[in-house]
Design a binder for these strands. Structure first.
Length: 426
RNA sequence: GGACAGGUGGCAGAGUGGUCGAAUGCAGCGGUCUUGAAAACCGCCGAGGGUGCAAGCUCUCCGUGGGUUCGAAUCCCACCCUGUCCGCCA
C-alpha cells in the first residue's frame, strides 16, 4: 500500500517507479480520485458539523423545556439530512475505488535496484564456494531420488502432480535439514522461534500483500481460510494492528512450516523432481524494524541465510533482483541461488526482501519513537533461511557418490541419529 | 457442534439515548520536593483524516458492516472474534 500524500507530493517519481516495475503510470488517475474524494469530504463535513451543532442545541432546548425551539431545529436538521445520503454514497464509492486501485499496486523499487524485465537482468553480486569436480557424470536429484526414498510416484498417486512421499533416511534428512536451520536461525542469528497457524484469514493475506491480486496462487479451504504460502504471512501478521515502541526493535521471528502453493501459471515448469511442489517446508525469517534500520537488517538477514549454505558447504551465488523479477511487495530483494551439479545451474533457494512500509501500511503496524507524538509505519523484511525441499535437492546433487548414494553433510550429522550415508536399500 | 457471557484508549475498567472521544486506576511523560532515588503532590497523556502559511477550526473512529433516531459507545439486524460451561476429539 502506498501513501497518497507521497503520491501527491511527487507524482512523477511515483509513476517512474511503477514504470520501472513494468506497471502503468497511475498517479493522475489516483490524484483525480483523491481530489474528488477530498472535495466531497469537505462538503460532507460542513453538513455534519451543522447537524452535530443543531442536534446538541436540540438536546439543550429540550432540557430547558423549549419544545418550540427544538421543533424548529429538528426541521433544520431534517433538511440537512436530505442532502447527506447522496454525498455519503459518493464518498464511499470514490474511497472504495481509490482503495481498490491502491491495494493492487506493487511496491516501488529502491534506487539501487536494477531496472529489468525478467531474471536475465538480475545482477550477480558474488559467488561463494567452488563447485565440486566430479570424476563421474553428476546426476540430478529427480534421477537419484527414487532409489533413495524420494517417492514421487506414491505422492502423485494419492495427491497428484507436485506432491512427494518421502521414506526412511530421506524423510529423516528432510527433517534434519529443517531442524538444523531452525537451530541456526534461533541460536546463532537471534531469531525468536515461533510455531504459527498454517490457516489464516483474508485480512492476513491482504496484510502481507498476497491478496487481492494473487489469490489464485494460494489454496483456500471450504471454510474460507487460506493455507499459508509461506510463514512470512503468519510471522509478519503477528504485529498487525499494533502500535509498537521503538525499543522493541528489531523484532526477529522465525518458524519452520509447510508452505502451500497452487502453482497456477507454472504449468509445465519444473514438473520433474522436488523443485516446485504444492507443499514444501521452509524456515522463514521475518524482521520488523525502523525505516533507518531496515537496509542494514536486510543485509544481516541475507547473511543469516547465506550462513546455512556455508555451513552445509553448498556453493551459491548472491543475486540482486531487477525490478521485473521482484515480488510485488518488495522494495529490494536478494536471491541466493545454490549450485545444482546434476542440472548444471544455479537455482533459487532463498529470497530475502525488504518490504519497507508496504506491508505495515496494509496491516496498520506502527510504532512510536521516544518523545514524538505521531506514529510511524514500521518496516518489514522477510527471507527464507532456507527452503527445506530445495536444500534437500542441493544436498542430494552436491553430495552424490558414484554408486548413487549420498553422504550427509557434517553439519547435519548431529540430527541424523548415526546415519552418515543414504543408499539404495535404505 | 450446543448454551451463556462479552468485545470501550498502551493495559485494567466505568459508562444503557443528549454537554461522552469517553469516568477512574495502572503504566508513560513533564514538574515540585530531595544531595540522588523512592514516596507524596501538581500537570499532561488515544488514533486517523479534511482545511489553513500558521494559530486554529472541523470530521471520523467505543470489534466490523448495515439500520432506527433530530441525536447512538448506549437501541435493532448481520457478521467476525474472545471467554466460560457442555458435547466430541489429537
Amino acid at each position: 500500500m502506498h501513501d497518497i500524500k507521497i503520491i501527491r507530493e511527487n507524482p512523477e517519481a511515483f509513476d517512474a517507479g511503477l514504470i520501472r516495475r513494468g506497471a502503468e503510470a497511475l498517479s493522475s488517475e489516483l490524484l483525480a480520485l483523491d481530489e474528488k474524494s477530498r472535495k466531497i469530504q469537505t462538503d460532507l463535513q460542513a453538513l455534519q458539523a451543522r447537524r452535530n451543532e443543531a442536534s446538541k442545541a436540540i438536546g439543550a432546548a429540550k432540557g430547558k423545556g423549549d419544545e418550540e425551539g427544538a421543533a424548529a431545529l429538528m426541521a433544520e436538521v431534517a433538511e440537512i439530512k436530505e442532502k447527506m445520503p447522496q454525498l455519503e454514497e459518493e464518498d464511499h464509492q470514490i474511497k472504495d475505488e481509490l482503495n481498490n486501485l491502491m491495494a493492487a499496486l506493487p511496491n516501488l523499487p529502491l534506487d539501487d535496484v536494477p531496472t529489468g524485465e525478467g531474471e536475465e537482468e538480475n545482477v550477480e553480486l558474488e559467488r561463494w564456494g567452488d563447485p565440486r569436480i566430479f570424476s563421474f557424470e553428476a546426476r540430478d536429484h529427480a534421477d537419484l531420488g527414487p532409489e533413495l526414498g524420494l517417492d514421487f510416484e506414491t505422492g502423485a498417486a494419492m495427491s497428484g502432480a507436485r506432491f512427494t512421499f518421502m521414506r526412511g533416511a530421506m524423510a529423516r534428512l528432510n527433517r534434519a535439514i529443517g531442524q538444523f536451520m531452525l537451530d541456526q536461525q534461533t541460536v546463532k542469528n537471534g531469531y525468536s522461534e515461533c510455531a504459527v497457524p498454517y490457516l489464516v484469514r483474508d485480512h492476513s493475506l491482504f496484510g502481507t500483500g498476497q491478496l487481492p491480486k494473487f489469490a489464485e496462487d494460494s489454496f483456500q479451504t471450504t471454510e474460507g481460510h487460506w493455507l499459508i504460502p509461506t510463514a512470512e504471512v503468519s510471522l509478519t501478521n503477528s504485529v498487525r494492528e499494533q502500535i509498537l515502541s521503538e525499543d522493541q526493535f528489531p523484532i526477529r521471528l522465525t518458524a519452520l512450516t509447510p508452505c502451500f502453493r497452487s502453482e497456477a501459471g507454472s504449468a509445465g515448469r519444473d514438473t520433474k523432481g522436488l523443485i516446485r511442489q504444492h507443499q514444501f517446508e521452509k524456515v522463514e525469517m521475518v524482521s520488523i524494524t525502523t525505516p533507518e534500520q531496515s537496509a542494514h537488517e536486510h543485509e544481516r538477514m541475507t547473511k543469516a541465510a547465506e550462513g546455512i549454505l556455508q555451513a552445509l558447504n553448498l556453493p551459491y551465488r548472491k543475486m540482486l533482483l531487477c525490478t521485473g523479477d521482484m515480488g510485488a511487495t518488495a522494495r529490494k530483494t536478494y536471491d541466493l541461488e545454490v549450485w545444482l551439479p546434476g542440472q548444471g545451474l544455479y537455482r533459487e533457494i532463498s529470497s530475502c526482501s525488504n518490504c519497507g512500509d508496504y506491508q505495515a501500511r496494509r496491516m496498520n503496524t506502527r510504532y512510536k519513537r521516544e518523545g514524538e507524538k505521531h506514529t510511524i509505519f514500521a518496516h518489514t523484511l522477510n527471507g527464507s533461511g532456507l527452503a527445506v525441499g530445495r536444500t534437500l535437492v542441493a544436498i542430494i546433487e552436491n553430495y552424490q557418490q558414484e554408486d548413487g548414494s549420498i553422504t550427509i553433510p557434517d553439519a547435519l550429522l548431529p540430527y541424523m541419529g548415526g546415519i552418515t550415508k543414504i543408499e539404495q536399500s535404505s
